[in-house]
Design a protein around this nucleic acid. Sequence first.
DNA 1: TAATCTGTATATATCTATATACACAGTATA
DNA 2: TATACTGTGTATATAGATATATACAGATTA
Lengths: 141, 141
Amino acid sequence: MLLPIQLSTASPEPMYHQIEVQLRGLILGGKLTEGTPLPSIRELALDLSCSVITIRRVYQDLENEGLIRTRQGTGTFVARVETEQRERNRLETVARAFGEAVETAVRYDCGPEEMRRLLEEAIVRREQREHPKGKGDQIHE
Amino acid sequence: MLLPIQLSTASPEPMYHQIEVQLRGLILGGKLTEGTPLPSIRELALDLSCSVITIRRVYQDLENEGLIRTRQGTGTFVARVETEQRERNRLETVARAFGEAVETAVRYDCGPEEMRRLLEEAIVRREQREHPKGKGDQIHE
DNA sequence: TAATCTGTATATATCTATATACACAGTATA
DNA sequence: TATACTGTGTATATAGATATATACAGATTA
């Protein structure tokens, strides 16, 4: 299974954290449901062009959060997530994301009207990138 | 002079980079103009509760970008910035900020309508934080 | 039971942040 | 007009976080 995770190598945000944030999003966002087997650490490391140890750390962190369950020799699986936790995290995360964008905009003397325009443009760019020829957005096997 | 720089100690983004991004924003955003003396590395380190070395690195990086000019024994000053460079960087940076916010939103199954609502909320939150009792946003001496 | 999946542990290199000691430039003042 | 003082940026050495390679151990299957 290929996970839709994008790494920005230019970013100063550590790899392990970029992966954690996105994988946590897939689980709490409901795109990966209880019991789903995650790719093996070697498979995901190869897919993301990083070390096995880095993926290992990500899985360990998320297991400590109770989001996944791992069994040596067998694999790693998505754990059960309470609806309440899912909703709370969802709201917090997305609200913070927009808070940071607004912060940057203000720093560059960008008013509300220009922010709204930039949001629309970002939405369109995202749409075009995701559906270049009308394809779906399923997680590939 | 106190610079309006906010550090998030929880964030995995390195300190030096958080400072760089925000100081670069103040210069390219036009809030700090050519010739303005920046605080000494010790003063800013004290203000931000970090090491002198960290500020030193920030100033060095920004000097390599040509945004500031430093003279031993005298201090560090804002350099001349071409209008074209200023505009280009401004657009790139703010557009990227919104691109990342949209990326996070999509990851959490958040549609355009909810994004617009969250943007408005973030703008209001920012306004309230910045002008709690109608104060201005000048850079304090 | 050998092969080959799975996760785990140890040792090492690079990056981030720091303390401490150093060198240059302006200013006060004897 | 020396020269000591206090401000500025600079360089060296060290601790901790991040990413890696390599070797190890459990689980499944041919």
